[in-house]
């Protein structure tokens, strides 16, 4: 009896330590976001104070940020680019991953190796050739110039291939024996079981696209045609940052990612727990 109680307290204290450290880590992760929101609500004279709450709550920074740059257009552009780019990258990588899993063909390893290699090529190397190419198509300052060079993602192919590989081959073969087409196998047999990894890769792709700065900087010129990340840069300069407006704009810019995360939370946690995404 005593032993059991002792064990129980042991479990309790172990779990208390675990919880305490998790709470501390959670605070560490949340605090910068909290500070961003709080700073965005402080008047200019208060921005540099260490007060944890705004003493004189103001939405002036939001008004200023919204009026200084065409925020609505930039957000809409970012949304269109990130959504289309993510969807296209998912489609291309799902098809590629399925092909690699389903068939063993001559040179498949070579092709897979090449795709893996392109993932290692830094953006700076391909930036100028890509830019010259999209200039040739007349896509400078067009959203197509932002999206089209990014419709395939080596990262997504590699990740999804790993996820697809874990799917039992016998089930695919069984579905084939039942007369399902490849298309049917992919969408009706495999996909419903791999929602979690696809969703988590999708959100990573979305965030990457949403946060992209340099490619939009090159391709677009007018503020009306560019994405929100370039807008955020407008509040930063070597001669001092407009902290209030910057934090307001950053808060606005991080909302869509937050909303998408909340919507797909279940899948993402599943995916991480199952270790589908390393």
């Amino acid at each position: 009896m005593e032993k059991a109680i002792g064990r129980k307290t042991g479990i309790y204290s172990a779990s208390a330590v675990k919880h305490a450290s998790l709470i501390a880590l959670a605070l560490l992760a949340v605090f910068p976001l909290y500070w961003m929101v709080v700073t965005s609500l402080k008047p200019e004279s208060e921005v540099f104070t260490s007060s944890l709450i705004p003493l004189h709550l103001t939405f002036e920074n939001y008004v200023q940020a919204w009026n200084a740059v065409p925020m609505d257009r930039m957000l809409a552009n970012s949304m269109v680019v990130a959504v289309i780019q993510t969807v296209m990258q998912l489609i291309t990588s799902i098809l590629a991953a399925y092909a690699f899993t389903r068939w063993e063909f001559r040179g498949s390893n070579l092709i897979y190796g090449l795709i893996a290699l392109t993932w290692l090529v830094p953006f700076q190397v391909i930036m100028i050739p890509n830019y010259v190419a999209i200039s040739g198509f007349g896509w400078r300052d067009h959203l197509a110039g932002l999206i089209v060079p990014n419709i395939a993602s080596a990262f997504a192919v590699l990740q999804l291939y790993n996820a697809f590989k874990s799917y039992p081959k016998t089930l695919i073969e069984a579905a084939r024996l039942d007369g399902a087409s490849d298309w049917g196998v992919l969408w009706r047999t495999i996909m419903p079981n791999l929602k979690a990894p696809v969703a988590s890769i999708g959100i990573l792709l979305f965030i990457t696209s949403w946060n992209d700065y340099f490619w939009p900087l090159l391709v677009t010129t007018k503020l009306e045609n560019t994405t929100i990340q370039k807008g955020l840069q407008m509040f930063i300069s070597s001669d001092g940052n407009m902290w209030g407006a910057l934090m307001a704009a950053t808060t606005i810019a991080s909302l869509p990612v937050l909303i998408i995360y909340l919507l797909l939370q279940r899948q993402i946690i599943d995916s991480f727990v199952k270790g589908g995404l390393k």
Binding site: N77, I84, M88, R140, D141, H142, L143, N225
Partner: peptide, 26 residues
């Protein structure tokens, strides 16, 4: 999925059109 793709493509097309109109610089 097919429907989503179609929507995506049409959005892409219209988005390009808009950007084209806005960017008269060329």
């Amino acid at each position: 999925m097919v429907a989503a793709t179609l929507v995506a493509i049409s959005v892409l097309a219209s988005a390009c059109g808009n950007a084209g109109n806005a960017g008269n610089a060329g």
